[in-house]
Amino acid sequence: MIYGLEPTRMNCDRLFNLLCLYGNIEKIKFLKSKPGAAMIQMADAAAVDRAVTHLNTAQLFDKKLNLAVSKQPEIMAGVAYELEDGTNSFKDFHGCRNNRFSSPEQAAKNRILPPSSVLHFYNAPPDFTEDSFNQICDEFELEKPTSFRLFSGKSERSVSGLTEWASKTLATEALAVLNHYQMKSTGISLLLMLYLRHCWT
């Protein structure tokens, strides 16, 4: 269970963007009877424990999150409704390619960290710049990072780097909104998905 979600800014995909750093997500359901509350079904109990440990009391869109283990062992879809942004209140993520713990090799690449002011981005187009990132932040009414650094990558298909915000809260908001954001590279018929994750500060 997660409480304290800002109803105008959060939906199933954005909640997935935040929680997928701690384990595979199977289903997410917002509760109509409790605005700002949602149930998340993860692939295993360890993933739930990691999410609760690292995100409980985190600040997000002027709200304090409250995470706890649910008494229900499974989410039943039930009757879905429309969230404030027009998206569905229920979504099934089972088998989603954006889940990051689908194999032991894939799981080993993940660093389990609490929210920080620094985000690592990767899989961005080769022509990606600080201005590109700032434009995306403007598009979603997010605060811009205070610093931006590109790594000297070996790949011609994508680039990676670090961004830092003035606070953990602002970085976590960017993570929830921009993780898995799809971008098209200039002059390349390739659709890339921007991946984000927390880094040590």
Rank of each mutant, 00 (worst) to 15 (best):
S33G: 00
K168I: 05
N110T: 05
P35Y: 07
F30Q: 02
N123I: 06
L55N: 09
L142C: 06
C199G: 00
P73R: 07
I136R: 01
F128L: 06
M183A: 07
G23K: 07
G23F: 13
A37S: 12
D13T: 05
L150Y: 01
I25A: 07
I112Q: 09
W165Y: 14
D92L: 02
I136V: 13
V118C: 11
Q41D: 07
D62C: 11
F133G: 08
M10D: 10
M183W: 06
A77P: 12
N179S: 11
V118Q: 10
H54P: 04
M10I: 05
V48I: 15
R14N: 08
S155T: 06
K32R: 13
R97G: 09
A107S: 12
G4Y: 03
D85H: 06
L31S: 06
Y22R: 09
V118R: 13
N11E: 09
S117E: 10
E105A: 15
T172F: 01
M42V: 07
D138N: 13
S103C: 05
S167A: 04
E139G: 05
E84I: 04
S160L: 05
Y181P: 02
E84V: 09
Q135L: 14
R9N: 05
L150T: 11
N88I: 02
N134H: 10
H180I: 00
S70E: 08
G187D: 07
E130F: 04
K71G: 11
D92W: 00
L60R: 00
A107P: 05
M1E: 13
K34R: 12
L83S: 09
E6F: 06
S152V: 11
L190Y: 03
M76C: 11
A43D: 14
L190P: 00
F133K: 03
F101Q: 05
C20I: 12
R111F: 15
F16S: 03
I2N: 05
N123Y: 09
S117Y: 08
N24G: 14
E26I: 07
P7M: 05
K71I: 08
T87D: 08
R50N: 14
F151Q: 11
T201D: 14
P115F: 04
E82V: 13
T186Q: 14
E141D: 15
T8F: 10
L196W: 02
L67I: 08
K71P: 03
K64N: 14
K29F: 04
W200G: 11
G161N: 10
N17H: 12
L192D: 02
M42S: 04
A77W: 03
K91W: 03
L18F: 10
M1G: 15
I2M: 04
L196G: 03
M193N: 13
K34E: 10
E173P: 02
L191K: 15
V69Y: 02
Y195M: 13
S189H: 08
P114N: 01
K144M: 01
P145V: 03
R97C: 10
G86W: 07
F16M: 03
D138K: 09
G4W: 05
